Amino acid sequence: MVMHSRIEEHPDIQAMRARATEISARPTAQATEGLTLLTGLYLAISPWVIGFNGNPLAVSNLVTGIALAVLALGFGSVFERTFGMGWAAAAIGAWAIVAPWAIQHASATTGTIASNTATGAVALVLGLMTTAMARGS
Rank of each mutant, 00 (worst) to 15 (best):
F83G: 02
W48M: 13
Y42R: 07
I103S: 02
V122W: 09
I97N: 01
T112A: 15
I66S: 07
G65Q: 06
S60T: 10
A69P: 09
Q104M: 04
T109M: 09
T109G: 15
M129A: 15
S115H: 01
T110P: 04
G65W: 08
T64D: 13
L41N: 04
A89Y: 03
T109A: 12
M133H: 05
L43G: 07
E80W: 12
A108P: 10
W87S: 03
M85Y: 14
A102P: 05
A121I: 14
E80F: 07
G74C: 07
M85S: 13
G120Y: 11
W48S: 14
T39R: 04
T119V: 15
E80C: 04
T112N: 12
M129F: 13
G76M: 13
A99Y: 00
N61V: 04
A114D: 02
I50T: 14
W48Y: 14
I45Y: 07
G127N: 08
Y42V: 13
G120R: 12
A121F: 11
F79K: 03
N55E: 10
G111F: 06
G136N: 11
L57F: 02
A114N: 06
S115W: 00
N116F: 05
A88S: 06
N53Y: 05
A58C: 09
V63D: 09
S107H: 07
T39C: 14
V59W: 06
V125G: 02
V59I: 11
A123N: 04
A69T: 13
N116Y: 00
G127S: 10
